[in-house]
Amino acid sequence: MDANHLINTLFPQGAEIDFDGEFFTGTGQVGDKIVAVLGTQGGVYIGVELAHRMAGIVLDTVRNHPGRPILLLVDTKGQRPSRRDELLGINGYMAHLAKCLDLARRQGHRTIGLVWSQAVSGGFLASSLLADECYALPDAEVRVMNLPAMSRVTKIPLERLEALSLDNPVFAPGVENYRRMGAIRDFWQGDLAACLATALDSPTGPDRRRAHGLEREGRLMAYKVAERVRHDPV
């Protein structure tokens, strides 16, 4: 699915989206609500300029349209791995984007992420994983790092990693694994516009992903360990 098709499917009542290369932003109509849309296509690397630009859209939405829901449609293969980005402090730019999304949430903007194509590592952390909820299309792809780089960092042979990536859920890429671990709230399939409308109307609250990971038996330790550290007497 390309971004145009996705937007038409999500917003049958209409959307006004400006495309600028791999980046797009605008608004869409859902019932009587206007939703701010912010996204990328083509599996773009997120570098310092793009992270800064996305943060700017979030800030403009908070300033000019208080309370307007924000839908993130970020298609990324991760942070741009370059010396220049590191030289300029890309982690600070990613953190800024995350802080702006958190500001929007605290100011009452509903924030929803949809992984519709690819979501990788730092680009995912600073965007959809910071939303109130993150959903996914069932054929989308989520991962942390390409296997050759993983092999070099972990010193585990590439062949071993390739074998593991077939069936080990905490290791293997895939949206179903992320759903079971609680990071993906649910899949959107069939009538995507209805999925979006339902998500916009569902209640929000604190971060429940650990609890979902436990309920779905994809992440058994995180919830219990965090609860113990929070509440154990010392």
Partner: peptide, 22 residues
């Protein structure tokens, strides 16, 4: 992220991020 448990680690980092901001 600890690549040996990459998915759980990535999600854990995002939980740390949310908790710092909270």
């Amino acid at each position: 992220v600890r690549l040996h448990e990459a998915n759980a680690g990535l999600i854990a980092v995002s939980e740390i991020m949310r908790a710092i901001l909270a």
